[in-house]
Design a protein around this nucleic acid. Sequence first.
DNA 1: TACGCTACCAAGCAAGCGCTTGGTTTGTAA
DNA 2: TTACAAACCAAGCGCTTGCTTGGTAGCGTA
Lengths: 203, 203
Amino acid sequence: MVQVSTQPQQIVNGMDDSPRGKLLSAAARLFRDQGFDRTTVRDIAREVGIQSGSLFHHFPTKEDILFAVMVEVIRFNTERLRAAIAGKADPAEQLRALIRAELQAIIGDTREAMSVLVYEWRCLTPQHQQEALALRAIYEQLWMDALEALRSAGRLKADAFITRRLITGMTSWSSNWFDAHGSLTIDQLTDIILDRVIGEHCA
Amino acid sequence: MVQVSTQPQQIVNGMDDSPRGKLLSAAARLFRDQGFDRTTVRDIAREVGIQSGSLFHHFPTKEDILFAVMVEVIRFNTERLRAAIAGKADPAEQLRALIRAELQAIIGDTREAMSVLVYEWRCLTPQHQQEALALRAIYEQLWMDALEALRSAGRLKADAFITRRLITGMTSWSSNWFDAHGSLTIDQLTDIILDRVIGEHCA
DNA sequence: TACGCTACCAAGCAAGCGCTTGGTTTGTAA
DNA sequence: TTACAAACCAAGCGCTTGCTTGGTAGCGTA
């Protein structure tokens, strides 16, 4: 037995490889494939190789597992956004980086947990919805700052809020059709969407 | 007792006011508010004022209720699309009409059933998914015909399939933020989205 | 060796679920 | 009045669900 690495974290769906992380990652996949309600605690337990009752040593309720999945993926992707725009001064380049990062989240490495975030939202308790919304607000503020900067620079004529919502629609829906093995790359899709926003395609 | 009207149909969610139609309309609202799985047959029954067992006089299973909701709303909105483009020769005007009709479906009179269509898709049996997909294909073909016509006329540079998917994202996501009582009208949103597609905003 | 902590098992409970059953009411038309 | 089907009720069956309970294995520390 050899210690392969001094950095044992292997990120999947934004979760580490601790028991808790593996549990969340498995839950995220099941929640996306079957939905939260159709996924039983026995399903999750089987996936990680323990008894169903043992899940409740890690989380007080099944709903807390869902909440944890969402919190982790929001946090992880907020950091991804931050990293994407770090050091970029041009607001148009910032926007491109944001779109790319969001696509990466939705159809890339955290796609399962992101899908859960969109489709299982109402399975959260109102209390947890509020807490998750607070985290999401931080994420959205990064977008709004960039879009407002674009507007100030005169490169965005439309309303920033509506623009953000149209972008959200385009990116989030991509999870329903984008084929990772197809000919269209994430970078290409990024530019196509960017084009719909700042309209260089018809200059 | 006076017969108020010779046309007793009052369309809600694309359903008529027969027992079956009222049942479907109530189910659509419950399915949207709580999700299919969290909605019990007792919930639906209570809503229409009958016993839960009596539901199964109308539908063989609970899932068949969901399927019926989806079939009705797809059919209804396919007709709406057809009516919208009828008599319009200019492909750009056709596109505007299509976007407006789809927004009407998603945030207007059939919004509850449309939301169910998007969010409860995987609750259908594979067999029913296939049947619903066949109906949806007809709907989508109307879109593709108009977009291809636009391309032929040289007024759409982007790929028609991708364009359609971006539009789908923008329109379907609007159900999550559009406020029917706000200052933004459906017609205004229609033009904003149309602008993202044929790009007249940066001429 | 003894301790304490984390992680887990084996068994099962109480509640809620979709759906069935056998019988009754209601509306319609001959 | 009779006939009949559609619509509905009252009761509950069999099963699955999230979660609980009481106990145990493994491991690092002293």
